[in-house]
Computed example of a mutant assay.
Amino acid sequence: MDGRTMTEPLHPVWISGAARLAGVIGYPVTHSRSPRLHGFWLARHRIDGAYLPLAIRPGDLAETLPALPRMGFRGVNLTLPHKELVLPLCDEVEPVARAIGAVNTLVFGEDHRIIGTNTDAWGFGAALAAGAPARDAAAPALVLGAGGAARAVVYALAEAGAGRILIANRTAERAAALIRDLAPHCPATVLEAVDWAARSDLLAGCGTLVNTTSLGLHGQPPLEIDLARADDRLVVSDIVYDPLETPVLKAARARGLVAVDGLGMLLHQAVPGFERWFGVRPVVDAALRRHVAADLIGAEAPC
């Protein structure tokens, strides 16, 4: 890059008959920002390749997926509703995806084998490390939510060294299921289900708060939590990225706390897949962030 301030890639991509192909499978898939994200890197590195949105119905996944490597695809990302449905269709599932119970990235081998992995945990950990480098990773963490994203977040926090992770979910049974499934993979971390109604009181003594629910997402109710009892060193993370500045992040900044928005997780989780498909390890930087966030609500919010 030549240092100019711009959000668009500097170089167009010219695709040849030897182009490397990748994409994202979802249904619907129109909301995905992955084509914009990977397209930026393809242009930056002048790679002969393309990253395509693929709208595939759940009922068609088993029939369609094996055809992709035969068509020249090196791999794909998976978004809703395919992350769990694809597990039995993989020839190999890497340990991180097996532990989390979901696949968000497929790599197609030269023999057309389908290898499933999960980069969400790595992406969250990398984004949190970048946004809060002084965070006490060993301190207790409070995770709100118990869905697929929460599983990746809990796994990442445990891998980073959290001694205790509290999981608060509006449906207690889902929190219990998360702990049952993940505890064997996080032997050095105590996982504990806690009452959703007590979430504000539980902040005392926590080093990290992560919202993995849809509360605060554009069009959804805000997350209601009182940060008054939080330690001054609490790091507040919200994996929602539309808007970039969710109500809980705004409240955290007003309280003087370190706040980490959800766009970083989206950007960082894309790095391992891009490297495996296209042979170049890309960098997450300010230019990429501006490009992907250009039309998000609150795009000028702090990183």
Rank of each mutant, 00 (worst) to 15 (best):
G3W: 02
H11I: 10
V13E: 01
A18M: 13
A19R: 15
A19H: 12
A22L: 04
G23M: 06
G23Y: 04
G26C: 01
Y27I: 00
V29N: 05
S34A: 03
F40G: 01
W41Q: 08
L42D: 04
A43D: 07
H45F: 07
D48W: 01
G49R: 00
A55Y: 04
P58Q: 01
L65E: 08
R70P: 08
F73H: 01
H82D: 06
H82W: 02
H82P: 03
L87Y: 01
P88H: 02
V96W: 09
A99C: 15
G101K: 11
V107Q: 07
G116I: 02
N118E: 09
T119R: 00
A121F: 11
G123L: 11
A132S: 08
A137S: 15
A138M: 04
L142P: 06
G147F: 07
E159V: 15
E159Y: 04
E159W: 09
I165M: 09
L166H: 02
R170D: 12
A176W: 07
P187S: 09
A188S: 08
A193I: 03
W196H: 10
A198I: 04
L202P: 10
G205V: 08
N211E: 09
G216E: 10
H218R: 11
G219A: 14
E224L: 12
I225H: 03
D226P: 11
D226K: 10
R233D: 15
I239K: 14
I239Y: 14
Y241F: 14
L244A: 13
L244D: 07
E245Y: 01
T246Q: 10
Q269S: 13
G279W: 09
R281D: 09
A287F: 00
R289N: 09
H291F: 04
C303F: 11
